[in-house]
């Protein structure tokens, strides 16, 4: 039985809440207010939902939404699939597990701006080392100059950076499955695939969902990698909503407009967060 602790818990949570309030919550509320304003020639006026109306009436928004969906869908799919495969392999207790974990985790501790630069170099038209390697296979097209090619590159780079994290979550989940169950199944004659299909997978599903949603939220909000590799190009092929917001704020100084995109992103995030919390609850219910 936990104690109620009187005033203590409130005092202990206070510093965190103050920090979050000052640096995250208040600015977010302020940016919601900003999304209802427009600034021209130094004069800021309240325009209601006009910014939203303008955004939702452009084809650019839907193009960006589409790019966001394509990007996140493939990014999550590949990250989870590869991470799951690696986690299954590492779960066998290989002697080199520590070594593998170290290497796989390296991209995660490096900044998006430095690694993005390297990915760009690798796909430079004519000079890029990977570009030249694959050029004969793709009709000598410079991959980064094609809308689909640029999308493939940014997805690959983002997957490269996130596998480690997803792998860790999934591995931790796998390790909670008692080996007795799978061993018993194998003794009963279940094939390797059968064990996976009927025992591991159902037990792992909640963890997979939690991981996927977590990765998804990171993917939607993170723009650093795309920004440093393609800046949203060619055309608008990789201009996800995050990049669109970045351009409005950082390139055009339309802060109200950018804030409105942020609010739309916030709504998308809130919906995902609700899913996340539900999945989390299911997972802990299963674990208990």
């Amino acid at each position: 039985m936990k104690s109620r602790g009187g005033i203590y818990p409130y005092l202990l949570t206070l510093p965190s809440l103050l920090l979050i309030f000052a640096v995250t919550l208040y600015p977010s509320l302020y940016s919601i207010y900003m999304s209802l304003t427009r600034s021209k020639h130094g004069v800021t006026e309240f325009v209601g939902l006009d910014n939203f109306r303008r955004i939702l009436n452009t084809t650019d928004f839907y193009q960006s939404l589409q790019a966001t969906l394509i990007f996140t869908a493939f990014y999550v799919l590949f990250t989870i699939t590869i991470a799951y495969a690696i986690a299954l392999m590492l779960n066998r207790g290989l002697r080199l597990t520590g070594f593998y974990m170290t290497i796989i985790f390296l991209p995660w501790v490096l900044s998006e701006i430095t690694t993005g630069v390297v990915w760009r170099w690798m796909f430079y038209p004519k000079e890029g080392i990977i570009q030249n390697l694959i050029a004969p296979l793709i009709n000598n097209i410079a991959l980064i100059t094609r809308p689909w090619g640029a999308m493939i590159i940014v997805i690959a780079a983002t997957v490269w950076r996130s596998i480690s994290f997803a792998m860790l979550l999934l591995l931790a989940g796998l390790q909670t499955i008692p080996t007795e169950i799978t061993e018993a199944a194998q003794i009963d004659g279940a094939s390797g695939f059968g064990v996976f299909r009927y025992i591991t997978w159902p037990l792992m599903l909640p963890t997979v969902v939690v991981t996927a949603v977590f990765i998804l939220i990171q993917g939607i909000n993170g723009v650093g990698m795309i920004l440093s590799i393609t800046e949203g190009g060619p055309g608008r092929a990789t201009e996800v909503l995050g990049i669109m917001m970045y351009r409005q704020a950082v390139q055009y100084y339309n802060f109200g407009y950018a804030a409105a995109i942020a609010v739309l992103l916030l709504i998308i995030n809130a919906i995902l967060a609700a899913f996340y919390l539900r999945a989390l609850r299911q997972e802990s219910a299963l674990a208990a």
Partner: peptide
């Protein structure tokens, strides 16, 4: 606290 992890941060910089 969990919800705060999901806010897109860029536009927060102006108020900050």
């Amino acid at each position: 606290i969990l919800g705060m992890m999901m806010l897109p941060g860029l536009t927060n910089l102006i108020p900050i």
